[in-house]
Design a protein around this nucleic acid. Structure first.
Lengths: 227, 227
DNA sequence: CGCGACGTTTACAAAATTTTTACGCCTGAC
DNA sequence: GTCAGGCGTAAAAATTTTGTAAACGTCGCG
């Protein structure tokens, strides 16, 4: 029942320091010293939270973050050095949940770990069954049904898949390529016209107007869903 | 038949705002401006759902929540301010069903109210004996007999199994795979043509017409039975 | 054996969805 | 200004899924 935390950092002393502190609070701790090992451990043991250093030799933290975010919403807490403001912003854009600037205190680390895990537990409690709520939108993957302001929507299979994918990553811009790969499969990753057609159909069914809008276009890049 | 909702908040404008919106959607609305009035109204009128502000003078929301939970499982939706993370956790521990952070949009409020009421209706429908009543349909699992508008139906074994399964989950979309696994067994989970044939036979025996309908198709996904 | 009830399979028309195509609009580069 | 490229929309074409009828086979029973 203990929560599993994966620590990714190339500095051995820091890894041990964080690891000992977390283990002392009853968490199960895994460590990786580079990006590739991190991805392997992530797939193998499905941790509940990841603490990820950005600055690493080889596959760096941002790259690891991006790859994990393509397949999972596990909370990720990013570690940055004092002068890496730019990386911090990038990391949040890529879907990091929180960041800590080195050097940091143990108390602060533990507080953020607890906060991140609590958020997850809560969202699982409410929607962990495949039910997702984004503002006035509600999606039930088990029943393949969607509601908007309480009204049931009639969505086809592809329409639902696309909306659900966007909703799972609500607030973030998702690229054409990513959306196409996930909904239509890898061989369709360049067929942008499908997206245009389907986003249009979703907008119509969601009754979007100028003042009430969910689906936003990021020209030249992709789309984003917001509450 | 309208569902009754009790709004508890010390701020008069917010109470009126929420109240008007819910009333406009056809709910019956009651309001209380403090904890004591809330408890009195709760006992007096047995609402179907409670919207409860935490921060109130006098008996606060958490106290009200605790007392109501000692005697009832009515869904309770808690309102908190942006910076009351701690109260939110406490409220969930005490058995709140969901929370909304102020300020919130009307759409989101309505969506959550509908979701909470839907959950209740669904869990009510599941308990009980071997006899199931869904609108003008009655199924007796012990005798394996079914009636429709008082007329006994002549159903074969598989027909009864399928109808009973759909009825037990009335109002929900059930996937092809789920239905096939349950009625025919795991090795038949891809034989969708069985479903087509059997749904067709059930529709005929239930005398379905355009205006009187029980079995609905969710193309590309499965079927649903409704009253 | 012949009959009836039931489950299974097949065939084809109807419906719904997905894919493809066409066209108009807007924006930014030149 | 105009041209190219990305975008939104509508609608036709192609494909997939569904509804329905009917044929087939098996099993139990008189």
């Amino acid at each position: 029942m203990a929560e599993r935390i994966l620590i990714v950092d190339d500095e051995e002393p820091l890894r041990r320091f964080i690891g000992r502190n977390l283990a002392a609070r009853g968490y199960e701790v895994l460590t990786a010293q580079d990006g590739w090992e991190a991805l392997r451990l992530f797939e193998q043991s499905a941790p509940d939270l990841i603490i990820l250093d950005i600055l690493m030799p080889g596959l760096n933290g941002l790259e690891v973050l991006k790859r994990i975010r393509q397949v999972s919403l596990v909370p990720i807490l990013v570690l940055t050095a004092l002068d890496q403001e730019a990386d911090k912003i990038t990391a949040l854009d890529l879907g990091a949940d929180d960041y800590l600037t080195k050097p940091f205190g143990v108390g602060e680390l533990l507080a953020r770990v607890r906060a991140a895990l609590r958020r997850v537990r809560w969202s699982e409690g409410t929607g962990g069954t495949g039910i997702l709520r984004i503002g006035d939108l509600e999606l039930d993957a088990d029943q393949r049904r969607a509601w908007h302001r309480g009204e049931m929507l009639r969505l086809t299979g592809k329409e639902f898949d696309l909306l659900y994918l966007l909703a799972r990553h609500a607030g973030r811009n998702l690229s054409h390529r990513f959306l196409l790969q996930r909904v239509w499969g890898p061989e369709y990753q360049d067929e942008v016209e499908y997206l245009r057609v389907y986003i249009g159909r979703l907008r119509r069914k969601l009754g979007e107007t100028d003042d009430h809008r969910h689906l936003f276009t990021e020209p030249g890049f992709g789309y984003r869903l917001e509450a």
